[in-house]
Simulated assay, not measured.
Amino acid sequence: MAEEEVGQNFTTDESSRMKSAGPGPARRRLRVLLAACGCQSAKNFALVCQSFITWADVRVVLTNPAWRFVNLPLVPDGSVTIHSDSAQWLFWQKHSYGLHVELQKWADIMVIAPMSANTMAKMLGGLCDNLLTCIIRIWDYKKPLYAAPSMEPSMWDTPLTVTQIQSLHKLGIIVITDIGKITDGLYIHEHVAVSEYVRLNYLGKSGAE
C-alpha cells in the first residue's frame, strides 16, 4: 500500500463525519486515537474501528508488527487515517517536529487495543522507539488513555505482569483487564463508550469543544 505523508487515508461522506452521535454533550465529535500492537487479538482491530466511527472521529496508529495481524480490508471506509512508523520521519522532514506531537494534541482520548506485553514493558521503561511509544511518552494524562493488554494466558499469571499492570494504574492509565473479553472488539468499544458517557455526562468533565 502506498504510504502518504501522515498515513493511509480512507475517506467517507463528509456529512456523516460531521454528525455528533457520540457520548456526552460534545459540540463536535470526540476525537479518538486508536492504536494496535502486534498481538494475535489485533485480528479484531477492524471491528474496533467500525464501532468507534459511529460516534467519533478516529485516527489509527499501528506498530510495525501490528500490520501482520490487522485485517486492513475490513478497516472501515470512514474518517480513518492509518499512521505508521515511517510516517513519523516523513512528517518530521516537512514540519521539523514529530507526528507524535500532532496526534497527541489532536486526540481527546487514546485507546490501545490490543497492547502487547512488549509495548507495555517499553512504555513503563520510558522507551520511545516507534510512533506509538512516542505518543505515550508525551501523553497528557488529563485526557483518558485506555489500554487493553493482550498476551498468552501463561504470561498473565506471572509476578512481572501483575507488577506492570499495577504500574499502569499508578500512571493513570485505564486498564481493561477482562482477559476473557479483551479479544472481543465490541467489548473494547462498549467499555470505552460507556466510560466516556459517564465521564462527560455525570462526572462534570468538559467535553470536546
Rank of each mutant, 00 (worst) to 15 (best):
C49R: 06
C39P: 01
G204E: 09
Q164K: 09
C39N: 08
L74I: 10
D157W: 03
R29S: 15
N130E: 06
W55F: 11
M115V: 10
T158F: 02
D13M: 15
C134P: 03
I136G: 02
Y197C: 01
I136Q: 05
V61L: 07
V32S: 08
D129W: 04
F52L: 10
V70M: 03
N9Y: 15
A117M: 07
W67Y: 10
S20I: 14
Q40A: 14
D108G: 09
I176V: 04
F69V: 06
T183W: 11
M151P: 02
V101C: 05
Q88W: 00
V75P: 02
Y97C: 12
P159W: 00
P144G: 07
I174F: 04
P73C: 03
R68D: 15
Q50T: 15
K142E: 02
E196C: 14
P144H: 04
A42L: 07
E4D: 13
V61D: 07
I112H: 01
T177S: 12
E196R: 05
Q93I: 11
R17V: 15
T63S: 03
I135S: 00
N9L: 15
K143W: 07
I136T: 05
G125K: 02
S154T: 04
K94M: 01
V70I: 11
G204P: 11
R137N: 06
K143G: 00
Y146T: 01
P25A: 06
V48C: 12
T63K: 00
V101I: 15
C37Y: 05
S206Q: 08
W67M: 14
H189W: 10
W139M: 01
V61T: 11
S167Y: 04
K205W: 15
G185N: 12
K170Q: 14
S116A: 06
C128D: 11
P114S: 08
G126L: 01
A148N: 02
I173C: 05
S51I: 13
